[in-house]
Design a protein around this nucleic acid. Structure first.
Lengths: 200, 200
DNA sequence: GTCTATAGCTGGATAGAC
DNA sequence: GTCTATCCAGCTATAGAC
């Protein structure tokens, strides 16, 4: 490696480091005050710098949100890629549901960014959106393997899961009033799905 | 009625009229652009007046939102107070669920105002909140009459209903992809609730 | 790359003339 | 009660010195 190349990569490393610092500060802000609390002034202040410096690393506020969305989507894909404990497809579906709920609850701001399209003026770029759909597709396959074929039942499943998570976040944040009902929810869903399968 | 008294009530009527016009314009705005789109400047413009005039009728923006919340909560209570068609408690529960979904879908902004605590800095006054809890309590009784005693199952029910409505609003607004699953959802819930009842 | 300073806009809320 | 004009705060984003 030439001296010039070393210099280049060193600078690049420094640059990535500064970007990472800003992103870390941004995550901190949204975790404390919700997605709406992300302001570039305060972000700069928290990172120990000023707004023009932020613009040296990101071309706009939405560019920051886009990277955050990407990071969140990749965490989601990674969580879903972990192998589940051995067991029947039904047991694995339960484990999957619990893992999904944990992922959402453990970082509410990330959940809102990924799953609630609630930021006026922001929508993720296709590149940032890709890992999210990848993860959702893998979840779909897991549900199919548990014996759920009817796409209507798949919609029912997503409504049930997001309903539990939303209620938990909205009405008992930090508690477990709805999350602890996941066992019941999965049992209820599988029983109905099986009965429909045999009936229809 | 004396001449003075007539004058007073006439003025009062005019005043209530102006208030109602402003509120109508406010509902129009949030229906078009979401709750966040409510700004006093634009509200005044739409009502054909100016901001100081708005402040002649409401002491703050939150005061407007509070009245809107109250109106929405009263509509909700009124919807829930309508008698349901004759039938078994289970049939009535289904009808109740459909009515709830219709209420939510028919005015998304109102739904967000009432059921999603998503406006930073606003929370309804106790007086405006009262009709909402009244309506929710009547819903709870209806569910109990359908044979659902376990409070855990009641939480499961709310998660299921709000989950369906949220998915419908977020991912298929104007369509019926999730709403049409209400029959299945209610059947699923009742089957599970009954089986638990006999088992436990 | 990093700063100071500021442009340009939108928001809620008010002062004061009429 | 209704207006014009304005205050003050917050925001994203940029110009220009260093």
């Amino acid at each position: 490696m030439s001296k010039v190349e070393a210099e280049l990569t060193w600078r690049e490393a420094r640059r990535q480091n500064a970007r990472a610092d800003l992103l870390a500060a941004a995550w901190e802000m949204v975790r404390e005050g919700g997605l709406g609390a992300l302001s570039l002034r305060k972000l700069a202040g928290r990172a120990g710098t000023t707004t023009p410096t932020v613009y040296a690393y990101f071309e706009s506020k939405n560019a920051i949100l886009d990277v955050m969305f990407r990071e969140g989507a990749e965490s989601f894909a990674q969580s879903n890629a972990q192998p589940l404990a051995e067991g029947t497809p039904q047991q694995q579906l339960l484990a999957h549901a619990q893992r999904f709920a944990s992922f959402c609850i453990s970082d509410v701001a990330r959940y809102q960014l990924l799953f609630q399209h609630s930021l006026p003026g922001f929508s993720p770029s296709p590149e940032s959106y890709a890992p999210a759909v990848r993860a959702l597709e893998s979840a779909r396959q897991l549900i199919e393997r548990a014996g759920v074929r009817d796409p209507r039942h798949l919609d029912l499943w997503t409504a049930l899961m997001t309903g539990l998570v939303d209620q938990q976040i909205s009405n008992d944040r930090g508690g477990d009033r709805w999350i602890r009902l996941i066992d019941d929810a999965v049992a209820m869903f599988l029983a109905y799905s099986a009965s429909e399968q045999s009936a229809g």
